[in-house]
């Protein structure tokens, strides 16, 4: 079966003022439909950069990126935008909701992106359905400032799911939430994989990583380890890698970072 995405030897080098800086080096990653993958690692290990490359926010400097077996390593910006719309859904630590729009309008904004056209009524119906999937359809008319952090993140997840993406990319989605709300958000994201959607979750929380099918650990831009959560966590501890406390400390800084976009 053709993997959903396949990264082979992907490298990302940033051109510095004095010397180039390698962010990712030779990373391999394969994700199948319906599979969930957690990416862990210390801050600066390249997790978010990896997610940026997978989500076509950025281009790799080297290596190959296949989507449904097709090479998309070098794409035009326009084509990349079309694929972002059709294939991927994004959830961020900061919710990035537009405060002047209601919850349903925030979800529907993903449908007004120039990639095809849906009449207003259909847009609204799909946005309501997406909000229903994350359990907050009753808050459809509320604007972000009137929603709690967990509710805002669920609106953001509904926005990521409204176009029925093949792969959801979540970059520390629980970083700004308390444990209980964070678990709820992970539940919602996990349920998306039950419909055949892939999920890549960047997290500092081993409890959340445990719920994913596979865990990748990045260290200094390279893939240090991969496998089930228990195995990766044990090996990380044995080499002095991140433990729950270390990851949690990294996440603590984001606790107050939940925000809406002005």
């Amino acid at each position: 079966m053709t993997p959903l995405i396949e990264l082979a030897g992907v490298t990302k080098v940033l051109k510095g003022q004095q010397q180039p800086r390698t962010i990712l080096s030779g990373v391999d990653l394969t994700v199948h439909s319906g599979e969930s993958v957690a990416v862990v690692g210390r801050s600066g290990s390249g997790k978010s950069t990896l997610l940026s490359l997978v989500g076509l926010f950025d281009r790799p400097t080297g290596g190959q990126y296949l989507l449904h077996g097709r090479d998309i390593t070098r794409l035009s910006e326009r084509r990349a935008a079309a694929l972002r719309s059709a294939e991927f859904g994004f959830v961020f630590q900061r919710f990035f909701l537009l405060k002047h729009l209601t919850a349903v309008q925030n979800v529907a904004m993903a449908l007004v992106n120039g990639q095809g056209w849906l009449p207003r009524r259909k847009r609204k119906a799909r946005a309501i359905a997406a909000l229903d999937r994350v359990g907050i359809a009753h808050l459809a008319k509320h604007k972000p400032p009137r929603l709690s952090g967990g509710e805002q993140q669920r609106v953001a997840i509904a926005r990521a799911l409204v176009r029925e993406p093949r792969l959801v990319l979540a970059d520390e989605p629980t970083g700004a939430l308390d444990t209980e709300t964070g678990n709820l958000v992970i539940d919602v994201l996990h349920s998306a994989t039950e419909r055949g959607c892939g999920l890549i979750l960047v997290t500092h929380d081993w409890d959340h990583a445990r719920r994913m099918g596979r865990v990748l650990r990045l260290q200094d831009g390279t893939l240090a380890d991969a496998g089930p959560e228990e195995v990766v966590r044990e090996r990380a501890a044995s080499v002095g890698g991140p433990d729950i406390g270390g990851l949690a400390a990294g996440a603590a800084g984001g606790m107050l970072g939940g925000m809406v976009v002005a």
């Binding site: 935008a81 990035f96 904004m109 992106n113 120039g114 926005r159 176009r163 976009v261």
Partner: peptide, 19 residues
């Protein structure tokens, strides 16, 4: 300048640079 994040978000959900 104030809407940098909104525009980045719009691009993330598939809006092209041109649009």
């Amino acid at each position: 300048g104030e809407r940098v994040e909104e525009f980045a978000l719009r691009r993330a959900v598939g809006t092209s640079r041109l649009l």
